[in-house]
Simulated assay, not measured.
Amino acid sequence: MTKHHLNTRLLHTDSADFDPESGIAPVSLPAIRTSTVRFRDLDVLDQTMARKNKGEKVVSYGIAGLDTHRALENVINTLEGGSYCVLNPSGLASIHLAFMSVLKSGDHVLVSDNVYGPVRVMHETLLKRLNIELTYFSAEHPDPASLIQPNTRMMYVESPGSLLMEMLDLPRLAGIAREHDIVLAIDNTWGAGMLYQPLALGADISVIAGTKYINGHSDVMLGAVVTNRDDLARQIHATQYAVGNSVSADDVWLALRGVKTMAVRLEHHARSALQVCEFLDSHPLVSRIYFPAWEKDPGHALWKRDCLGSNGLLSVSLNCSPDAAKAFVNALELFGIGFSWGGFESLVQWVSPGALEPHSYWKEPGKALVRLHIGLEKVEDLIQDLNQALDQISAS
């Protein structure tokens, strides 16, 4: 059988089957909504429960999802190179599931200090109460293995980071994890499987916020946990069922619709983002651009080695104070002020100095940082908007 490109396989994975009587099939798989399923007889019920108890993903009750859910899980497995995927109501819920599936009270986790901010909240509000200890480390640490303790069970990282786009040497970290028999889990929301495939680089678990590029339209909250290890799949499967996370079939359908155009959207986002970088690089108010696909970014070599493409997310430090940068943010007309990214629209986030303090990668104290998501608007219009907003700082 011909081995097609990922973009092609993505469009054809889990398409709707033809009706055996009419020979007709819809282009888009329908959203199958139900809380309860019926069994033809008790033998079918017994067979279903026996398969379920073995860890198979069978349809037995609405909380575990039906055909629509299986289709998106198969699509995400195709993207990530995984053998098991489970959906969650958000990216953060997926991070929580990954932690709870691997860890028990008394365990220790090494966490890269560039992780998604709410992970620290989860640590303070939940993990400490469960007697799970976290140690944050810099990706630039010369010997992360020296931080491993006898009770270290997992290493959790994000690459690239979603605030400063810091690239981590994932194969190096995977080698350390294997040597010490600990699980390496990664937040792959930036890469969404199409740009970055951490399981192929040695990670054991990949976590995605499908809220972002997989959906692409800023109208769905969704997460996923993916692995290609059977032992971890069994642990994740059992934990997900115990926790009871569930995702609306309509949200899953929206993500299935959105993911079909992800390849062309990402190409547009990435192309426009590089043009924005070229403009920003020439502006005297710009101190540094954080975007690994940008050739002047310190992580560019790792990006070229490990990534398959780029997207529209970048951060920019400005030669002014954080307070002065608020005038820039407020002056933007085409960029909505918001925390998310990955949709069709352009967004800007003013980053507070406090949010940057835990990041050892941040080496510009006193300067302002703004994060930009370059959307699908005409890039010349976005550049013109950025230019007039930068003039606001110059004027003040």
Rank of each mutant, 00 (worst) to 15 (best):
G62Y: 09
H4C: 06
V157N: 00
E179S: 15
L280V: 03
A64N: 11
D391L: 14
C277D: 05
D67G: 13
S94F: 02
R51G: 08
R153E: 04
R70N: 07
L79N: 08
T78M: 12
S112H: 09
V109W: 07
G55V: 09
Q392S: 14
W253D: 01
A98F: 10
D17V: 13
G106M: 08
V259T: 11
R257I: 09
W341K: 06
G375Y: 05
L266I: 14
P144E: 00
L45C: 06
F339M: 12
N330I: 03
G81L: 04
I63F: 12
L201H: 07
K304C: 11
V58S: 07
Y213F: 13
R38A: 13
M167L: 03
A50R: 13
P26M: 08
R70K: 11
L280G: 00
R178H: 12
V183M: 05
I374Q: 05
K326E: 13
L170A: 01
D19Y: 10
D281V: 06
F339H: 13
T125F: 12
F279L: 07
V102M: 00
A395L: 12
R33N: 15
F344T: 13
A327M: 10
R70E: 03
N88K: 11
V157C: 01
L314K: 04
D67T: 08
T78K: 12
L356I: 07
K212N: 13
G175D: 13
L163S: 01
A293T: 04
G193Q: 04
T13C: 12
A25H: 14
Y213L: 04
A98G: 02
L376F: 06
I132R: 04
L222V: 05
G336Y: 01
L201I: 07
V286Q: 01
A355P: 02
I148F: 05
L274V: 10
A301P: 00
V58I: 10
S317Y: 04
A324T: 11
L318N: 03
P150M: 07
V44Y: 06
E124R: 13
A255G: 07
G91Y: 05
G202L: 00
S310I: 06
S159E: 05
E278S: 14
D187S: 09
Y136F: 14
